[in-house]
């Protein structure tokens, strides 16, 4: 069993099929939805973790690619802009999942760990330097 992070972007939300249902039912995948927006006639997105056998994930991805959908397996919807970040650490008590952390207690530099980010967006509100942004 492996877990893959996945971001599906629908340029125009014409997909009326229950994609998540089919991924679970037909491809035996465990879906953890991180963030989603599905509104008719507008763009939409699904950010999720999918867990299952590698071949099932592959087949599931093939199924999803059959729609008018951009599939991105590398990025999340939350970006941390290192140039804007001043490493002040105001985000630390707002990030609930340990995605924004200090690892070197000497320099106190802020490290962003995308795989731990659950896209709650709390950092966006908290950051005084606009270093955390949502791509949606």
């Amino acid at each position: 069993m492996i877990t893959k992070k996945l971001m599906l972007f629908f340029p125009k939300c014409e997909v009326e099929k229950p994609i998540v249902y089919h991924l679970i039912k037909d491809y035996n995948l465990k879906i953890n939805l991180i963030r989603a927006k599905i509104t008719p006639e507008e763009y939409g997105y699904l950010v999720m973790d999918i867990t299952g056998k590698e071949e099932d994930i592959e087949r599931g991805l093939e199924y999803v690619k059959g729609f008018d959908v951009n599939v991105n397996a590398t990025y999340r919807g939350l970006r941390h802009n290192e140039e804007k970040c001043t490493d002040c650490g105001n985000c630390l008590s707002h990030c609930p999942s340990g995605a924004l952390v200090v690892e070197d207690s000497k320099t106190r530099k802020i490290i962003f760990k995308p795989d731990k980010c659950i896209e709650c967006l709390a950092c966006i509100r908290a950051c005084p330097f606009n270093a955390c942004i949502s791509i949606f």
Partner: peptide, 11 residues
């Protein structure tokens, strides 16, 4: 209590 800082030690 969890702690935040507004002063950057790095900078």
């Amino acid at each position: 209590v969890a702690v935040s800082s507004l002063s950057s030690y790095t900078k």
